[in-house]
């Protein structure tokens, strides 16, 4: 079943056309990975879905409802969470404050909080610390935790492994597998090995268009396609 549909989505940033007509269906459940070279339009795709840049023309449909042109806040309240490339952590706020801000009613659902502690034990340890004092990996954990502190149907995550140590990347992969049991993850990722290990479906964005879409298993097996679309050597 399709959760999110992008239909001929075109986005301009200033005078530059970045997306030239992205059409893509994201099925419900699992991890859907957007791959592509630098500057291909992956981040712009996520930001356009989130309403941070308005796609004109084109449409975005979420759970069957047209969300094109809605305010970012309204899109978020429909059940879409966003973890930007720079993580978007509020550095002057504590770990607790960062998380409570993302709750709907200003208080924690205890079972959910325990689940977050289980996924990211460091957050419990640094609960009262200001977020700027966390390491890069801990900040990324906080950013992801903030996205799942309330039940969300879709979580958009932009390059979560960038600059992280291999041990943190492995922990992140485990967390994403767990999270994708109850929510769909749309992941932008440059690290193909990481993407391959957790992705169920995938698409390659190239020059503002969808160059390929399919299952990750098929794409991982096709080294010629990888070489052509991502310049990956076998």
């Amino acid at each position: 079943m399709t959760l999110l549909s992008l239909n001929n989505m075109k986005t301009d940033i200033g005078q530059y056309a970045v997306l030239h007509g992205v059409t893509l269906d994201i099925p419900e459940g699992g991890v859907f990975v957007l791959l592509g070279r630098n500057g291909a339009g992956k981040t712009t795709t996520l930001r356009s879905i989130m309403g941070l840049w308005s796609p004109t023309p084109g449409s975005v449909t979420f759970r069957g409802a047209d969300i094109t042109g809605l305010h970012t806040a309204e899109i978020a309240r429909k059940g879409i969470a966003y973890v930007p490339e720079n993580m978007g952590i509020f550095g002057s706020l504590t770990v607790e404050e960062n998380l409570i801000l993302a709750t709907e009613k200003g208080r924690f659902d205890q079972p959910r909080l325990k689940r977050i502690y289980a996924l990211f034990p460091a957050l419990e340890q640094f609960w009262t610390k200001q977020a700027w004092s966390l390491s890069g990996g801990q900040k990324q954990m906080l950013a992801v935790a903030r996205a799942i502190i309330e039940p969300r149907a879709l979580i958009l995550i932009d390059e979560p492994t960038k600059g992280l140590a291999p041990s943190i990347v492995a922990a992140m992969a485990e967390a994403f597998r767990e999270i994708s049991q109850s929510a769909t993850i749309l992941l932008v990722e440059q690290n193909f090995h990481f993407a391959k290990s957790i992705g169920r479906d995938m698409a390659v964005i190239d020059d503002g268009l969808v160059a390929h879409a399919g299952t990750m298993a098929d794409f991982a097996a096709d080294t010629e396609l990888q070489e052509r679309l991502l310049s990956l050597s076998a």
Partner: peptide, 14 residues
């Protein structure tokens, strides 16, 4: 306080 740091992210939180 969050908005002072990152307005866009506050909006993305709803």
């Amino acid at each position: 306080r969050a908005g002072v740091e990152n307005r866009e992210m506050v909006e993305a939180l709803g």
